[in-house]
Nucleic acid binder design. Structure first.
Lengths: 331, 331
DNA sequence: TTGAAAGCGCTAACAC
DNA sequence: GTGTTAGCGCTTTCAA
């Protein structure tokens, strides 16, 4: 910047003014400075600027695994929001609760980022306190906390919608397959979907049977194994609600293996509407994954520029997508 | 830091020394400082440190779309490499050639990142010159340039392997489906695979027929449409080599629609071995996507710490994965 | 073994 | 309109 100033025959202050388009600068000097910048191929040092301004122009997205299609899809929404601004996106993938704690501690520092987005990962009061103290804006996606801004869907209603769809078709033996209801990361959304499922059954006077439920690791193969187990018992369910599309696809695998026809002999409904769900012609609860990232990103950007008032929860709408894997029982 | 120094009754220089674990500091003052840090919940301002040191501890990954499973998988490898270091990962997704140029210009600045990774995106001499001038370490993944470090597979050999597999099974009418051989981003890998395909055919004295080839947008549906077109002509191919698994899955869709049995009436081979390929039981050319990110990330980290010598190309091995979608023609 | 002080590159108050 | 200057928070000579 010194060099540019010298070459243009002005002070660094003036160069700064020109570059930032601020203040009253005479057209003549403006051009001189611009020319000097071009000739020296100069551009601002963003680090120095950050130090001076106390703004990093960086947003951090903290998420558990880049392997989950739903998380990637949300992240894409976040990217889109960032593309609308001048902020860069730091992607932090944490595999263990310990790593999560370390990362959350690190990124609750004011100097590190302008704001943080937490995707599909529950936070505890300690984490929240750190952020509230440091004043780093934080938005949760697919997670709950009363003191924070968050964008979610109503998973309990979603679970209910799924189960009610099956009940409406005439099913009474309705299985439920999910990841662990109590896991180290405590995905609260799974639990909420389970509650909705129970509620729907109870409302229809259908007993909620443990033997129609399985929980386990996340993933298509695990879901397949659970479904195999579930369907091999005497008097098996005639319909299965899987708490994610990935799991629902695993259920379809199991049905294929057991030569059980879908939807004639078994109805399957998923949750999320990931890209593959359409191709598999899977009935599912669509949740706006991309939009959740987009909305959260925009909200966060707002907070960065204008510190927010009281925390709000943005609830995005769910939609039942009736496709080819559900039908009345017995064909 | 002032506060910590005051509280510990030392100078900021000493605090700095303690935190960085450097130099000779007496155990007594070390403990005093550490205690003061803990009491004040203090930690270094990374921005100030960056300004002083000229290192940002940030690596930028520049890629085209987060929608391609292959790119996400490579990115995961990069993440893994970063997790081994103290660097953060900036993920820059660029949708258009203009955005790419802007981003590449921006991130060839020394002050912005310690290094840059470009994933599945060709670079031209102008881009390269900028990086070479600024001295920002750069590693290419799935892209070519003689003056840069890069990690690749031998796509020409890969294309050849795929075609030879089909020829070996007895096929003579072998279709080829790909994204545009000349596209705005000029994915050179597609072209290389095509060359390998041609080579294999020529070696086997099979004429390379334009009418057995289709190119178009990337994506499962586009591939399906191309396959529909390809298979609807008189004397259609008995086997199709799709330049990516996503496209191969689109070909399977088309076959299903046309009630053409795979592999009995049509053999299909893909490329990449993305996660879905296994579930679809797709014969494919496995390329180490995750590892490409990991290796490139490590290489880049090395370069950051020790400026590299002459550029090298790391070639990762390809592997034919024979699964259920290929068989001799006519059943 | 520790402290004083310069300076990384920028911006914003204040002077002119 | 433009220049001077202080200072963002850190590290690192150099001196003690």
């Amino acid at each position: 910047m010194q060099d540019v100033a010298a070459r243009a025959g002005v002070s660094t202050a003036t160069v700064s003014r020109v570059i930032n388009g601020s203040d009253y600068v005479s057209e003549a000097t403006r051009l001189k400075v611009l020319r000097a910048c071009a000739e020296l191929d100069y551009s601002l040092n963003p680090i120095a600027q950050s130090l001076r301004l106390g703004r990093t122009k960086t947003i951090a997205a903290i998420l558990s695994f880049l392997t989950l299609p739903s998380i990637v899809e949300r992240l894409r929404g976040v990217q889109a929001a960032m593309a609308e601004s001048d902020c860069d996106l730091l992607t932090l993938s944490v595999g263990t609760p310990e790593a999560r704690d370390a990362i959350l501690e690190k990124y609750s520092q004011r100097a590190r980022t302008d704001g943080v987005l937490i995707i599909s990962m529950p936070v505890n009061d300690n984490h929240v306190k750190r952020f509230l103290n440091s004043g780093v804006p934080l938005v949760l996606i697919d997670a709950q906390h009363p003191e924070l801004n968050r964008v979610n869907v109503d998973d309990e209603t979603g679970g209910k919608m799924a189960a009610e769809h099956l009940i409406g078709l005439g099913h009474r033996k309705i299985g439920f397959i999910s990841s662990y209801l109590k896991n180290p990361f405590q995905f609260s959304s799974t639990l909420a979907r389970y509650k909705g499922y129970c509620e729907a059954l109870e409302s229809a006077d259908i007993p909620v049977l443990r033997r129609y439920q399985r929980e386990g690791e996340h993933g298509r193969e695990y879901a397949r194994d659970m479904a195999l187990d579930l369907l091999s018992q005497p008097d098996p369910p005639t319909a299965i609600f899987a708490s994610s599309d990935t799991k629902a696809i695993g259920v379809l695998d199991a049905a294929k293996e057991l030569k059980i026809r879908v939807p004639e002999e078994l109805s399957v409904i998923g949750y999320d509407n990931i890209r593959d769900a359409e191709y598999m012609n899977l009935t599912t609860i669509h949740q706006p994954l991309f939009d959740s990232g987009l909305e959260a990103g925009r909200k966060l950007l707002n907070m960065v520029h204008a510190p927010s008032s009281s925390p709000v929860e943005i609830i995005l709408p769910l939609k039942l997508l009736k496709r080819g894997t559900t039908a009345p029982p017995g064909g």
